[in-house]
Amino acid sequence: MKEIRIHARAGQGAITTAALLGTAAFIGGKYALAFPHFGAERMGAPMNAFVRLSDQVIRLRSQVYEPDYLIVLDPSLMRGFDVFEGFRPGGIAIINHHEKVQCPKPIQNIKVFTVPGNDIATEVLGRPIGNTTILGAFAAATGEFGLEPLQQAILERFSGEVAKKNAEAARRGYECITKGF
């Protein structure tokens, strides 16, 4: 079983990101459990969402404390807060890049990919919402599912132009890892 912790602020789409991740894994033939942890219900408050992926039915319902994978949607959360807490050795982190925020020095034996998710999203979607780009990068970096199931999940979730553009944003994120920036 692989465990994923997503760091974001309330309103940034962490739940949608977790749901898309779970859906992509489901389409790819895995069991997936995606769930949010709400803090106080206000926009901008730090919050987590979690996903578990497995080849077997997932019964464990606790939050994720020792993630195999990390997704940081809002890099400003790394100011004075250790997003790497409990991170397992061999883990992979995907961090949405922000030029003003220094990525913390990764502890040994983990891989950190910094992806300009919001920049790509601004270019492709016209809005700095890097979630689907980051998910594309996650797919490429971890190999948990391919780009195709992810794009299918996105097309199921959204409709029309928004769906197409987000699928394209996911491809761009994917290629950030496979082809470099």
């Binding site: 739940i15 489901f26 997936a32 995606a34 769930f35 949010p36 319902r61």
Partner: peptide, 10 residues
């Protein structure tokens, strides 16, 4: 609440 109502699973 949340643990099931807000959880995505098959």
């Amino acid at each position: 609440g949340y643990i099931l109502t807000h959880a995505y699973e098959a």
